[in-house]
Design a protein around this nucleic acid. Structure first.
Lengths: 104, 104
DNA sequence: GAATCAGATAAGTATCTGCTTATATGTCCT
DNA sequence: AGGACATATAAGCAGATACTTATCTGATTC
């Protein structure tokens, strides 16, 4: 359902980098910026896009906002991928099990 | 490696629709256009983007070009998804098997 | 309460993207 | 060879996107 936003969010290399960084552990926006040559507003906007896509979720903690990977987004991609299992390369055969479950 | 092009290709709803249509079976560009309110050049451009992303491949056949889903692209997405298996929702647990294989 | 800090939002702008029309390439048919 | 057909490419343009600077909100600390 939210594929549009998910794929659009991941289409941007900066956003993929942010996501990857978050996969290393929850982090606030300022920490995320470290070593990333990105302005504060830009980071905020990227995080908003990732959040809207369901790829990331936030948890306010005082004046900090901690972000972390949201499994929901990954699940959506998995479900999307599943629709095309007929075309998966052999290496992905095991994925078929997943699909069976996800189809209910 | 080609994540950039893959996600950018899938970010467009028209291209996702084309891909989905192709998942129903190989088809030439003209057949793909049927019922799709899309001009011939636009279709050609979309197919070029999907091809560049490795999501689709072509096979010339006389004056027709048949397109079909390319498992390579799906494999790339699977590999990308795999990097974040630590965050997969439970429903996707079986996917872990796949990953083990893909990591060699 | 005032200064400070984390983050979000607003508005403007340059670049990118997907479309269009026009034209080119290549194949088939008679 | 000439015309019709399938597709690709070129050039131009309107709308989308990612950035910038400036400002705002809310929480902490003194």
């Amino acid at each position: 359902m939210m594929e549009a936003e998910i794929f659009k969010a991941l289409a941007d290399p900066t956003r993929r980098a942010i996501f990857e960084k978050l996969a290393g552990g929850r982090m606030n926006a300022t920490a995320l910026r470290e070593g990333m040559a990105i302005s504060q507003p830009a980071m905020s906007q990227h995080l908003a896009a990732l959040r809207a896509a369901g790829l990331v979720r936030e948890e306010r903690q005082g004046r900090f906002v901690n972000y972390e990977v949201d499994p929901e987004g990954l699940g959506s991609i998995g479900r999307w991928l599943g629709k095309y299992r007929a075309y998966w390369p052999k290496r992905m055969d095991d994925l078929k099990r997943l699909l069976k479950d996800m189809d209910q």
